[in-house]
Design a protein around this nucleic acid. Structure first.
Lengths: 155, 155
DNA sequence: TTAATTTAGGACAAAAGAGTCTTAAATATA
DNA sequence: TATATTTAAGACTCTTTTGTCCTAAATTAA
């Protein structure tokens, strides 16, 4: 997988928070139920995003997590970078340490071009962009199977 | 990592075989020594490539492995597909099963564009292309650290 | 025929990723 | 104050990936 499962869950949850940016704090239990992600696992991931400053959290009744900044200002590059690091945006496709312009691997030049397309996409896509897709065109954040079994809960 | 370690090792070994396509069979021990890849691990990976038909193998003295087809005719898409499958060339970036034109995720459209750049790169790059880079421009297949410690063995 | 070389195949171990669970701390409210 | 709610933190388990090792089978050559 290009992105780890943790990263995918973190991204989906971030978009969910963007969809509910008007509300105060959202309990992780609600996110995990709506997105069908294990509560405890998601908790760990969102704790990481909180530590990295992307989310703020609040304990106790009416507590939960929320985006630190408005969804328009959060690029998905930051979410991915916080969870998976920047290897996919900067790394050598043959995983050769020290691959660069000085000592390139045989795919260095062509891969750099493609890699920059990936990087640009993540740098220019905000949580608001993805949330808009979900709202305007009914795009989905959960497994199609789960949509079929409970269409009313579509997120 | 975009590609698994197995896949990276399989690719590096395939380029090595392309570099020595004039010879008969190359023992896996030689590849593992030159590329500094664990012999036993590499053996398993190359067995897989043999099973998939990309390599032919021969047991006994003067045995080893060799490319089934000339390096010019082997695209690296096939090597990656044999080891890691086609998920990176076809999969949803949010790993949502059933993501497609009918039921897209919010990144479906933009990711498909970028993913096709990746796909095209791997479809249009042959082992001969990579081997040429290694030969003509002295590009490398091994870790820079190992090059420094043994520059004469550069591959 | 015997010995050496080499891949095939599978058991096994270590490390990393994914997922579960329990307890502690903070907070709100009755 | 007492209780319920919620995140924080860390131990723990399960699975997958990565890596090691051993034995069998095929082949060559002495």
């Amino acid at each position: 997988m290009l992105l780890s499962k943790s990263c995918v869950y973190g991204l989906r949850a971030s978009v969910f928070l963007a969809l509910h940016a008007d509300r105060e704090y959202i309990p992780i239990s609600e996110i995990s139920e709506k997105l069908k992600i294990s509560f405890h696992f998601l908790t760990k991931i969102l704790q990481l995003l909180t530590q990295k400053g992307l989310l703020v959290s609040y304990r106790g009744p009416h507590g939960g997590v929320a985006l630190t900044r408005p969804p328009k200002e959060v690029i998905i590059y930051d979410v991915v970078n916080a969870i998976d690091g920047d290897e996919i945006f900067t790394g050598c496709i043959l995983s050769l340490p020290g691959c660069g312009n000085q000592t390139p691997c045989p795919m260095h030049e062509s891969w750099t071009l493609v890699r920059n397309k990936i990087r640009t996409l993540f740098l220019t896509t905000s949580l608001a962009d993805l949330a808009k897709g979900v709202k305007d065109n009914n795009l989905r954040l959960v497994d199609i199977e789960q949509l079929i079994s409970a269409p009313a809960d579509k997120v």
